[in-house]
């Protein structure tokens, strides 16, 4: 089953560059990536640029509206994702727990839709 791990964090909770916490976070992500590759569970993943760079699109009555910013102003914002291929939710959770941002933000794990149900 495919699972998307969505990484949410408050911008100011993210470790700042050139701090020891930042170094720890990078190391954490590197260790996680290594494990994902070894176990062959990762299909993809990216960090996103900060939420200030976001553009949101809505089409209503055939008219496209563009908004400057994310779709919702929430305290924790989407910062990146991983796409996993795992047998069970327990496996997906185990891998998602390795994401350093989970320690100060939230990682949402959701199964990808499949269309072979009768």
């Amino acid at each position: 089953m495919k699972y998307l791990a969505l990484i949410y964090a408050e911008d100011k909770a993210n470790p700042q560059p050139n701090t020891p916490e930042f170094g720890q976070m990078i190391a954490g992500y590197q260790a996680a990536s290594k494990k994902y590759e070894e176990d062959g569970v990762v299909l993809g993943g990216e960090a996103l640029q900060p939420v200030e760079t976001a553009t949101s699109i809505r089409i209503r009555d055939g008219k496209a509206e563009l908004m400057d910013g994310p779709f919702a102003e929430t305290k924790e914002q989407l910062g990146g994702y991983y796409l996993f291929e795992c047998d069970t939710l327990d496996d997906a959770i185990r891998y998602a727990k390795m994401i350093p941002s989970a320690e100060y933000g939230t990682v949402e794990v959701r199964p990808v839709q499949t269309y072979d149900l009768d």
Binding site: M1, Y3, C86, D87, T88, L89, D90, A92, R110, P111
Partner: peptide
């Protein structure tokens, strides 16, 4: 069913 919660005795670690 949809999220794949396994029908199993959890792993030793868990």
């Amino acid at each position: 069913s949809k999220a794949g919660i396994p029908f199993a005795i959890p792993d030793t670690d868990d």
